[in-house]
Write a protein that binds this DNA or RNA. Structure first.
Lengths: 216, 216
DNA sequence: TGCGAAAAACTAGACGGTCCAGTACTAGAG
DNA sequence: CTCTAGTACTGGACCGTCTAGTTTTTCGCA
């Protein structure tokens, strides 16, 4: 197929595909840093080591490039977290699992790239409402839906006590995520807590959650 | 043309001050709708019924106008909520008061104007980090700080049980605010819940909070 | 398999058209 | 005389197109 000098397990690709990728990366950088209006196509071309003509060969317009980037980033974002809930036996195992899940979710979401993406998408809600809706659905909504299903199973086994699984999932999700996300959204990427701080935060959130929804 | 009928207790102002106000209002509208880069000074001048020269007589630059507007809006925003905690006697009175406070906070914050302001400020975090910091401090941080103080007093009277008042305040704040805010941030202003929905949401949040922090 | 030409992709830069922040200038109202 | 409306203007940014010439890939055919 392609030339087989593949380095470090990276699938080798033709020149065109390589340029395509370079453009995507440069554009991601530019849009995340400068916003939709603030980014300019000349800079993207220069940054990706490609002529402007080539940029327009791969993407029909600035708008199309923007949509492509945001959707691909939101697509990748949520996939890393969803893990099947293992058999938890007993209250203490449940607590440990919830803390672990919360911490995993936090460390995935609380990265500069995803915070910048979130700022970018929020900024463009009036211009690109669909992008924001997709981010919401593939982000918090998906997390909460899966949590709700898991909580329902746990309730059936009397490990949790709840009447509204989705409300419980929302409470769990935001007990854990809201404080650091909203801090970082306004205070910038350097306000992202350290992994240890996130772990402590997760533990406190789970303690509150279990006080409200845990088996007595 | 300029009639001097001061209506509804509005402080009497000269023509210059009136133009000043008109410019501020038009600029607020423009910036909230189109963002910093998307707004343009010609539109602001036209919208406020003033010549462009006059706009620049009152505000030295687009940037200065933007900063002025955002700071004035963030200043007004938080002031409406802070109410002295009355004497609450007993657990049920506390619950009712917390629900009421939560609902008040929600109805103040969950308005299109403030959601738009929040989107605008978040969008401009890289360009105007100070504005975002001020919004954070005068918004969530102030609310949580005041809550923490109130919670500490309640803990001294054994109506709450907590070791870290600020953590408890954060949990309360985000149990109540996070879900609707983050929904509206991404799904747009029409995703702002109705007052009745907000009331129910507040009640559920307070129930969880009291399960974790309420007196046994 | 290897060669060579057509096809496709790419570069560098210029350019048209549009938009916009901020300034300058004139005419007229108070 | 002072302030302002109205408007034209400056200087520059930027999207998307175009041109002319170069490089890479593809593929028929030896």
């Amino acid at each position: 197929m392609e030339t087989d000098d593949n380095q470090a397990g990276e699938a080798e690709t033709g020149r065109s595909a390589r340029k395509h990728k370079a453009i995507l990366e440069a554009a991601t950088e530019a849009f995340l840093r400068n916003g939709y209006l603030g980014a300019n196509m000349d800079e993207i071309a220069t940054l990706s080591g490609v002529s402007k003509q080539t940029v327009y060969k791969h993407f029909s317009s600035k708008e199309a490039l923007f949509v492509e980037i945001v959707t691909s980033m939101t697509g990748r974002a949520g996939d890393a977290v969803h893990a099947e809930m293992p058999h938890v036996e007993g209250v203490e195992a449940l607590r440990r699992y919830l803390v672990d899940y919360a911490w995993r979710q936090l460390t995935v979401v609380m990265t500069p790239r995803l915070m910048q993406l979130r700022r970018l998408v929020i900024a463009e809600v009036p211009r690109f409402p669909d992008l924001a809706r997709v981010l919401y659905e593939r982000g918090p909504l998906r997390a909460m839906t899966m949590l709700a299903a898991a909580f329902e199973r746990l309730a059936a086994r009397d490990l949790l006590v709840l009447d509204d699984p989705m409300a419980a999932a929302s409470h769990f999700n935001w007990l854990v995520m809201a404080e650091p996300i909203n801090r970082a959204m306004l205070l910038g990427d350097e306000a992202i807590p350290s992994p240890e701080a996130l772990r402590q935060h997760a533990e406190r959130g789970v303690r509150v959650f279990l006080a409200a929804y845990g088996a007595p």
